[in-house]
């Protein structure tokens, strides 16, 4: 069963904050090794959806299945235990710590005498960076402050992968990056897919999306409006869906009839 089941499957997920319906009846599937882009205009519900998956918001209605099993994700800790890691836009790295310290922060390896096991941590960090072929970081002993935006993003991703993430949610990973660094990060995302991880990529940049995503899911006003296979679509089609995708019901009216 687990061989064929999607990594994560959301069915009919709704979320309302009081009277505001942020998500209504959203379906989403991410398979292992698949890179799914989640696109939509501001306020389309992308952030609410990832927060629901990450355990920050509880869903109001619907079902989340993780590797075929129904789950309720009540906290980021529970999400992490399942293997869901979110790499947020602002990265959450401490500038003054080095690469190894950042990757192990809060989950340090200790020796038998309760000292930091620097050697074990450094080896593991190098291993993961090598596995992801992050080659631009000169030394894992350098502080994160001196890294470029792309390198910082790589460290944040490597940290998530190291803690055995199976599903990686990347929130606007290229938003603040230059051309070369964007390349670097997109290549990394591509490799994550090759290594069998599921990736959910939230991005405003359709160029980036077309570069790496296998599937493109479009949200509009909290609803699924379209889903495309990257190989058989083009940017015009996606933009159209983002701005004018057909809604199954108009928000506002829906509540009146269902309530």
């Amino acid at each position: 069963m687990s061989g064929t089941a999607p990594l994560i499957q959301l069915t009919g997920v709704s979320k309302n904050f009081g009277a505001v319906q942020a998500l209504s009846n959203v379906d989403l599937v991410v398979n292992p090794g698949e890179i799914v882009a989640l696109v939509g205009d501001n306020g389309a519900g992308k952030s609410t959806l990832i927060k629901a998956i990450a355990g920050i918001h509880a869903i109001s209605k619907g079902e989340i299945r993780w590797q075929g099993e129904p789950v309720t994700v009540r906290s980021p800790k529970e999400a992490a235990r399942l293997g869901i890691e979110v790499v947020y836009q602002d990265l959450a790295l401490a500038d003054n710590l080095d690469v190894v310290e950042n990757m192990f922060l809060g989950r340090e390896k200790l020796t038998r005498t309760f000292q930091l096991d620097r050697i074990a941590m450094e080896r593991r960090a190098l291993e993961v960076l090598e596995q992801l072929r992050v080659t631009t970081i000169r030394s894992v002993g350098q502080s994160v402050e001196g890294l470029s935006g792309g390198q910082r993003q790589s460290v944040a991703v490597a940290k998530a992968v190291m803690w055995s993430a199976k599903l990686l949610i990347l929130d606007e990973p290229t938003a603040a990056l230059g051309v070369a660094q964007t390349r670097e990060v997109l290549e990394l995302v591509h490799r994550l897919g090759e290594q069998g991880l599921g990736v959910l990529l939230i991005s405003h940049n359709l160029h980036d999306v077309f570069e790496v995503a296998d599937r493109i899911v479009v949200l509009r006003l909290g609803q699924n409006v379209a889903e495309f296979d990257r190989r058989t679509t083009n940017q015009t089609e996606v933009v159209e869906a983002i701005t004018a995708g057909r809604l199954s019901h108009v928000p506002g009216q829906a509540e009146e009839t269902s309530a």
Partner: peptide, 18 residues
């Protein structure tokens, strides 16, 4: 390490579970 992390970025420290 936690002391340095709290001083460097309290948000990062909190998210790391410190």
């Amino acid at each position: 390490l936690s002391v340095y992390a709290v001083g460097g970025s309290i948000e990062a420290a909190r998210r790391a579970g410190i």
